[in-house]
Design a protein around this nucleic acid. Sequence first.
DNA 1: TTGAAAGCGCTAACAT
DNA 2: ATGTTAGCGCTTTCAA
Lengths: 341, 341
Amino acid sequence: MAQELNVSPSTISRALSGHHSISEAMKKKVRALAEQLHYQPNHLAAALRKGRSNLIGVMVPHIEGNFFAAVVHGIETVARKAGFNVMICQSNEDVNSEKQNIEAMMSAQVEGILVSLARTTRDFRHFEKIRRREIPLVLFDRTLEHVNVSSVVIDDYLGAFQLVQHLIDQGARRIAHFEGPRHLNIYNNRFRGYHDALISNGLEVDEQLIHYGNLTYAEGLEAMEKLLALPNPPDAVFSSSDMGALGAMHVLKARGLRIPDDMLLAGFSNEPITSFTEPMLTSVDQRCEQMGQAAVKLLLEIMHEKPKDFLPRRIVLPPDVLIRASSLLHKEAATPEPVLR
Amino acid sequence: MAQELNVSPSTISRALSGHHSISEAMKKKVRALAEQLHYQPNHLAAALRKGRSNLIGVMVPHIEGNFFAAVVHGIETVARKAGFNVMICQSNEDVNSEKQNIEAMMSAQVEGILVSLARTTRDFRHFEKIRRREIPLVLFDRTLEHVNVSSVVIDDYLGAFQLVQHLIDQGARRIAHFEGPRHLNIYNNRFRGYHDALISNGLEVDEQLIHYGNLTYAEGLEAMEKLLALPNPPDAVFSSSDMGALGAMHVLKARGLRIPDDMLLAGFSNEPITSFTEPMLTSVDQRCEQMGQAAVKLLLEIMHEKPKDFLPRRIVLPPDVLIRASSLLHKEAATPEPVLR
DNA sequence: TTGAAAGCGCTAACAT
DNA sequence: ATGTTAGCGCTTTCAA
């Protein structure tokens, strides 16, 4: 280090970190020398000494696709502003990678963890370690029901309910649904919103119209084919994912059916693509970036608390139902489109 | 630690890391105890001692949008498989954040750095520090010309050339171009490909047909309006971004012009959206994920070399020109579409 | 096969 | 306002 050129070991440390009881003259000299010698602080050593890594761990199922990328964008931005580095992991929708990644984050001494669960995650045992070590944890978007942990989600139930209500208002009476794995809150809530909207309008819930799957484009194709083959096909489709809805759209167009005239269509997530299809696809915006920001903020809050005082918190963001041409027979109700960047 | 319950400080360390000169019996006992006490290795301390952080730093302009998210996906996957954690930074297209992020990565003691440059980056001075400390560095996609550094890119020149050649083969004679900032290799090369393809076909390069900008959707709208207002408008548009092309597409449709009959249209990047527009948009695939993987592999290679032996390497991936309906008057030449996931 | 001891680079309590 | 000293948790010579 640099005490050779002047005189002092810890004065250097203090000078660099702007400690108050160091003369301005000294500070200046030290900074100048640091510059000159290309001194590079070793964050690891400081972290070890202080017991603070300044690291936040983030685990998402995957980072491709609009949603998680946007959330991570929000997370990274807020975290860095608060002086934290971000370590990214992907579970690849696999519980085992999830376990390994948790290990990796813990041994990297992260000070807090943000997670959106893998599709194959059905229980919470591998998160117990985190709780035991009292590392703050916030789940976002994909959580498990009945698990006592802080989380940030949008109101999927409400989004689905409002969307299906809209379809009914447009005259739909037999509404099909593409659903995802129900052990995940988001798909369960979207299904419940669909279900309850039907019931509260006195409509029948027909199991034949509900297709379970992974909500991919390919499965959307397949499901739509099957629906059209029914003796009494639906007059609307509400998919829990946009990709599923796009698959359905493709089949409908290929069959020469008109959207929305012959079939109303709606997805969920407001993927950018939905603004570019013809007709544009009705969907529900998930406020991705806001969700990421809210998740970090909540995490930081929890990190500043005494572990003893800790009580899990739940932030529910309002969904934003975007009515577009694919579900609009009566044009007046359309959501105004924002200008695209 | 656990030496109290048995007998030894460093034996523990050896046992846990599977050192060969430790009896199996001992190893078993230690592992059992570690499990029981919920022992959590402190990676930071190990990193400090060993002088190896097992961290790779990645800086992208932003993580939203398909391209960088997919590259990061590729990076994360390969890096983790090789036992490295990944620290993510975003420059937000800003040189100053770029500088700060470099500081952050260096003090986090990353063992290697992957960067795709911000749009505002015009020189390489802030990267000198990295070189001085002999930290392996690989640029991907966005690099600067004439800078002696390892990089992974696609052959933007070839992609653009082939694409424009295709437009000419389809009968285009006045081809407009939306270009990005030319100090960045990618936009410069796409422009050059465009330029040279025209020249080598004996066509004139008309400055009126070249629109400089940030290649956004909004600028695509604007540029297309201007082009249509020319006394002698173009018969094709090649945009260096897909979003720009989509803006153009919107204007053309709004004017009742047919694509490709009245105007051929092509973009660059193969954003997922391009498969969902009508007509589908001709574009150039950038092999995002492959690029990420190649970048990490190259970085790992460099990390395993002696700094003295180091010679910058350059990996150029072949572009993949995807001919779609937006530029196809004669249908036979279409690129076969893969099945969407 | 195991133990003893030193030290990675930094910071903070304590002393001056 | 600055110096002294100890130690964060781990690994690794060196010695036994």
